[in-house]
Amino acid sequence: MRTVSPANNSDEIARVLARPPRSLWRDAWRRLIANRLARLGMAISIFFLLLAIFVPVIFPYNAKIDSDLMNQLLDPSLEHWMGTDEQGRDVMNRIAHGAQASLGVGVSAVLIAVIIGTLIGLVSGFAGKWIDLGLMFLMDILLAFPGLLLAIAVVALIGPGLRNALLAVATVSIPVYARIARSTVLSIKEQEYVTAARCVGSPSTRILFRHVFPNSLSPIIVQGTLGIAAAILEIAALGFLGLGQQPPYPEWGAMLADSVKYLTSGAWWVLLFPGLAIMLTVLGFNLLGDGVRDALDPRLRVD
């Protein structure tokens, strides 16, 4: 601990007061963009997000009529940069349009899971007693399954398809956020500002949403960013197993499943590029997530 002698104490205070106010978030943002790998991750993530948002708007695509049987499995060329697939469809075009399914659904799944999971965690940590016990028991049961297995089981139950895959992936990640939100709430509950709020007579819901919730956000944001990477992988895995996006609509995992049949014929491009798209997107969100973690909580930084 640093001790300040009374002589320069007032100087110190004056200097601190003279500094422009900096919020936690602005500080974190500054640390984030100072991190080279995080910037790279952000650039990759934003690129694919823009792809997912704008490509379907700017270049409308009708998957049902997009096949050109005269041009099956063409090598990459100037005309088709990433070649064509078994139905003569341009691979690059389908990857661009697949971004909406792979990335959009991954992000939505995480959003749903974060909202439901955080609510469960907040209520559980704040209410305590048997509500806590009951909710956490439910979460423990969901956590007793390996993630993909549970997602597969959910899709097997409600039927294959992109929307159901989204629900399955969201369901699987709910307990993760519930757990994090709860443990943060438990530690925040003991803080003095919460006691103070209680003393001045704030109602529980107000304390929960005004004081506890904003302060429990940062671990959830970190986990959420990394969770998008995991969700994209899970959506792709479900697509690969034929349980996600259904043909003829493009999705990266499902495109890889189609490429299996042409593995032995040497058509490497239908295999390489959709996988690269998945890997790059996931890498982007992983880098960004690591960066966000270091930025929000510098104490956790490894090196």
Partner: peptide, 11 residues
Amino acid sequence: VSMPVFWLGLM
């Protein structure tokens, strides 16, 4: 850590 395991397998 960013690679889908099934893609790596196929490659």
